[in-house]
């Protein structure tokens, strides 16, 4: 039932690329609808108190997106996207006081403890909370849970994505298929990435 439907009704739009795939950091600025606790995290980063800030949630809920966006507000601070093949931190990073770390589970336990102790502030993403590790490292910590998805937010993101993928920007209102949007939330719940992947696969140029 979800297939063969279009998420928008406008039929005169020309796209430069599929709006539901990967985006550049600049596009992210125009697309993201930040979570309500976003400014709280920003204030924590700006405050002088050392702290570990954990963005925690299941995959596809927007942790990495928010981490990337946050870092763009502090462009002088380093961000490392760890992966299976890229799981080391270079020595020069350790001269910094604050670091953004995506997918901390790619590091070993010892390395993680070392990082919690070394940096004044670590802003990290993880699937499960690592409270016990922070306690082990005797560091102050706070966490922000990524769960739930508001229909208005999803709609806004989809509109923004369509706008930024157009060949020529339009003043026309993007008419979103709201019934379809509701079905997507029913099917995928708060799995934002799942919804975007589905829209990517069903997008017709």
């Amino acid at each position: 039932m979800l297939n063969n439907q279009s998420i928008f009704f406008n039929n005169n739009l020309t796209f430069r690329f599929n709006p539901f795939g990967g985006i550049t950091p600049e596009e992210l600025n125009q697309i993201i609808v930040p979570k309500s606790f976003f400014s709280k995290i920003k204030n924590l980063i700006e405050s002088p108190t050392p702290i570990i800030i954990e963005l925690v949630g299941k995959k596809g809920r927007g942790k990495t997106t928010h981490l990337t966006f946050l870092q763009q507000l502090f462009p002088h601070l380093p961000i490392v996207h760890l992966t299976k093949n890229n799981n080391t931190l270079t020595d020069n990073l350790f001269t910094e006081k604050i670091i953004f770390l995506d997918s901390i589970h790619h590091l070993s336990f010892q390395k993680r403890i070392q990082i919690y102790r070394h940096f004044d502030k670590v802003i990290l993403t993880t699937h499960q909370t690592r409270i016990l590790e922070y306690k082990w490292a005797r560091q102050k910590h706070t966490n922000f849970y990524f769960r739930g998805l508001k229909k208005e937010d999803l709609q806004q993101v989809i509109e923004n994505r369509i706008q930024s993928a157009l060949l020529h920007p339009t003043k026309e209102k993007i008419e979103i298929n709201e019934a379809y949007l509701s079905q997507l939330i029913l099917t995928f719940k708060d799995n934002f990435r799942g919804i975007l992947n589905h829209l990517y696969e069903n997008f017709k140029h």
């Binding site: 690329f17 599929n18 795939g21 990967g22 550049t24 990517y200």
Partner: peptide
């Protein structure tokens, strides 16, 4: 060049 799709954008 922009590589766009189901992955991060490559340029």
């Amino acid at each position: 060049m922009e590589g766009r799709g189901q992955t991060a954008v490559i340029t």
